[in-house]
């Protein structure tokens, strides 16, 4: 199993993308999940539906709308141009933003489920013992919902690695910038380089399996400790 320099570049880019997206998603999804888990607002249902959309939408449809929005005439494109950043399609940044939308439900939902299952009581108890909001989150809520956050991290990471349709729409196929592993595999197959495609595909398969193995393994370990 050998990787060409182009394969290595694609793998590196994919890992970079997935890591960055996962970190940003944890920052975005945690307050969003907390709000969804606690709110009685009428906005809860529409917001939940919006967050879940990428689960059912063909990635090409999501990618298409993002392409339009980030394009020179789109609202995001106009904004980025006004800020002197140019337009985002066919850039790594554009890919990061698109991936955030694409993987959002995979990160929000496990965290939201964990928070809902935990309920308000532990945070209330912590408050009565003198813990402020941030203190409550890091000393009580996070440790008690760790399995949910683990699942969210792994799913967000793995799902970002696995994206293809959105990347093609928004990122195209620029080596070192937007050509991720899934696109590289597609290119190898198009060029009838089945051996190269096999190597990359097998690497992806192994990585995904190991990631899931670690998640389920850690969950079982946690149950045993308790």
């Amino acid at each position: 199993m050998t990787f060409s320099p182009a394969d290595i570049t694609a793998i590196w880019l994919t890992l970079k993308l997935a890591t960055l997206v996962t970190l940003l998603l944890l920052l975005i999804a945690t307050p969003l999940a907390w709000w969804l888990a606690n709110t009685h607002s009428r906005l809860k249902v529409p917001v939940s539906a919006l967050v879940a959309l990428p689960l059912v939408l063909p990635p090409s449809v999501l990618g298409f709308y993002l392409l339009i929005a980030m394009g020179p005439q789109g609202p995001i494109g106009q904004l980025t141009q006004a800020m002197g950043l140019g337009t985002l399609p066919f850039t790594f940044t554009g890919l990061v933003i698109a991936s955030i939308f694409y993987s959002l439900p995979f990160v929000v939902q496990p965290i939201q489920n964990a928070l809902e299952a935990l309920g308000k009581r532990p945070a209330e108890v912590a408050a009565t013992l003198g813990a402020g909001p941030w203190d409550r989150f890091f000393s009580v809520i996070l440790p008690l919902t760790r399995p949910g956050f683990m699942t969210a991290t792994v799913l967000g990471f793995a799902h970002t690695i696995g994206e293809f349709g959105v990347v093609l729409m928004i990122g195209g196929n620029i080596p070192g910038e937007t050509r991720v592993v899934s696109v590289q595999i597609y290119d190898h197959v198009e060029a009838l380089q089945y051996g190269q495609a096999h190597s990359l595909a097998l690497a992806m398969l192994a990585l995904s399996f190991v990631l899931l193995l670690l998640t389920y393994g850690s969950r079982r370990a946690q149950v045993r400790v308790l």
Binding site: E124, V125, A126, T128, L129, G130, G132, D135
Partner: peptide, 11 residues
């Protein structure tokens, strides 16, 4: 807020 009231609470 609760955490600044200096209370104890037994649920």
């Amino acid at each position: 807020p609760t955490h600044k009231r200096g209370i104890g609470y037994v649920f």
